[in-house]
């Protein structure tokens, strides 16, 4: 039997010139070569707004992960590519807004769960709440899962943002 290599989840950070079309180049590369995107976040990160940081969470065999990084590195407007999963410990956070609308009983339970998850109530009406919850992807998923029983209406997630631990930059 052929041993198929195990797939791994990697968080990749990319520093790019903040120019028109740069995001299309990055995600077009993933789509065109059949790579996975599980999470994607992007925003300018310097005060002048000339550089953006893209964080991609992807899944693939070690060989594919290497290819992804090498292919990204080829793109002209890309400054640096880092693999936070490979380059030692990192912190990862995600933010979600979760809207629920349920019976009185469900509302009470939702508030209790939110407190346990340290979720903030950012909107409340007579019939609904919007919670803001931050944390690792697993925590966000667990929170959403619990809310499904309590009148979940809709969810938005930012995707993963991540930085290397310690004093060094990418």
């Amino acid at each position: 039997m052929i041993n198929t290599p195990q797939k791994e989840r990697h968080t990749i950070s990319i520093i790019v010139d903040n120019e028109a079309g740069v995001l299309a180049r990055v995600i077009g590369l993933f789509a065109g070569r059949g790579y996975n995107i599980e999470h994607l976040t992007v925003a300018p990160v310097d005060s002048a707004g000339t550089e953006s940081r893209i964080t991609v969470v992807t899944v693939g065999t070690p060989k594919i992960i290497e290819q992804i990084k090498a292919q990204l590195d080829r793109l002209v407007p890309i400054h640096r590519v880092g693999d936070l999963t490979e380059e030692g410990p990192s912190v990862e956070r995600e933010l979600a807004l979760v809207k629920v609308s349920g019976s009185n009983e469900q509302r009470l339970e939702a508030l209790r769960v939110a407190e346990a998850f340290r979720a903030k109530r950012v909107d409340s009406t007579g019939t609904s709440f919007v919670f803001e919850v931050t944390g690792k992807t697993e925590k966000i998923k667990a929170f959403i899962h619990l809310m499904e029983e309590l009148g979940l209406v809709e969810v938005v997630r930012t995707g993963v943002a991540a930085l290397k631990r310690g004093k060094d930059a990418l």
């Binding site: 060989k63 290819q67 090498a70 292919q71 590195d73 080829r74």
Partner: peptide, 11 residues
């Protein structure tokens, strides 16, 4: 000259 050619197909 292209790093992405390395190990793309053959180790």
């Amino acid at each position: 000259i292209d790093r992405s050619s390395i190990n793309k197909i053959i180790h």
